Simulated assay, not measured.
Amino acid sequence: MAERPTTSWRAGIAEEAEELAAGTLDPECACMAALFPGELLTVTDAVLDTFEAELLGLANLDDAHVFAVVERVVLALNAVNEAHNGGAFETGEREQLCDYIDHSLTEHGVDVVALTARHGLGRYQLTDKWRKW
């Protein structure tokens, strides 16, 4: 299964905390906990929980249904980002979220390349119509 970005963000926080505790990281260089506060991780996971629940049976639905699922997850992530003053997801996080959406769809039988091509889009434009982060 595609790994949620929040999983790697949590792992980064834990690794940084271990390095701080061991004295191998200068506290002024520590940033993970500030970048990914608990509340941000919790609400992002809630959005991804909903997205994952909607993936079941998606391969048998038409393009409009697939795009509707993508639209809902992207709009929900937009709301998370807006609630964090537009700074919840930086470039790396955006790429991780887009990759997660793509890989999750693929794992559930959606041919993302064919889907986007049928609509005149490149594969990596799947979320562009709605994404503000």
Rank of each mutant, 00 (worst) to 15 (best):
Glu107Cys: 11
Trp130Leu: 09
Ala14Asn: 09
Val73Thr: 06
Ser104Glu: 11
Leu126Ile: 13
Gly122Ala: 13
Ala88His: 11
Leu40Phe: 06
Glu90Ile: 11
Thr44Glu: 05
Gln125Glu: 15
Ala88Met: 10
Arg123Tyr: 14
Ala2Met: 15
Leu97Arg: 08
Gly109His: 05
Lys132Trp: 11
His119Cys: 07
Trp130Lys: 04
Asp49Asn: 15
His84Asn: 10
Trp130Ile: 06
Glu82Ile: 07
Phe67Glu: 08
Glu54Leu: 06
Leu58Ile: 15
Val66Gly: 10
Ala59Gly: 04
Tyr124Cys: 07
Trp9Met: 11
Ala117Cys: 03
Thr42His: 14
Gly38Met: 06
Phe36Gly: 06
Leu97Trp: 09
Gly92Thr: 14
Ile13Asn: 07
Ala30Leu: 00
Arg131Val: 04
Phe51Lys: 01
Thr44Arg: 03
Gly87His: 08
Met32Trp: 04
Ala17Cys: 01
Ala33Pro: 09
Ala117Gln: 12
Ala2Gln: 14
Asp49Thr: 07
Thr42Asn: 10
Val110Met: 00
Leu126Tyr: 08
Glu52Asp: 10
Ala76Met: 02
Arg131Pro: 08
Ala14Asp: 07
Glu16Ala: 03
Ala34Gln: 02
Leu105Trp: 12
Val69Pro: 01
Glu18Lys: 13
Ala68Asn: 08
Leu40Arg: 02
Val74Trp: 03
Asp111Pro: 06
Asp102Asn: 12
Gly122Tyr: 12
Ala79Ile: 00
Leu55Phe: 12
Leu77Ile: 01
Gly38Leu: 10
Ala76Asn: 06
Val73Arg: 03
Ala114Ser: 12
Val73Gly: 04
Glu95Ser: 15
Gly92Cys: 09
Arg94Pro: 03
Leu41Trp: 00
His65Trp: 07
Asp102Tyr: 14
Arg94Lys: 14
Lys129Pro: 03
Ala114Asn: 11
Lys129Tyr: 10
Gly86His: 05
Glu39Ala: 12
Thr91Gly: 03
Asn85Ile: 12
Cys29His: 00
Gly57Pro: 07
Asp63Val: 04
Ile13Pro: 02
Asp111Glu: 13
Ala88Tyr: 13
Glu28Ala: 05
Ala22Phe: 01
Leu41Lys: 00
Asn85Arg: 14
Val47Tyr: 12
Ala21Phe: 07
Arg10Met: 13
Phe51Arg: 00
Asn85Val: 13
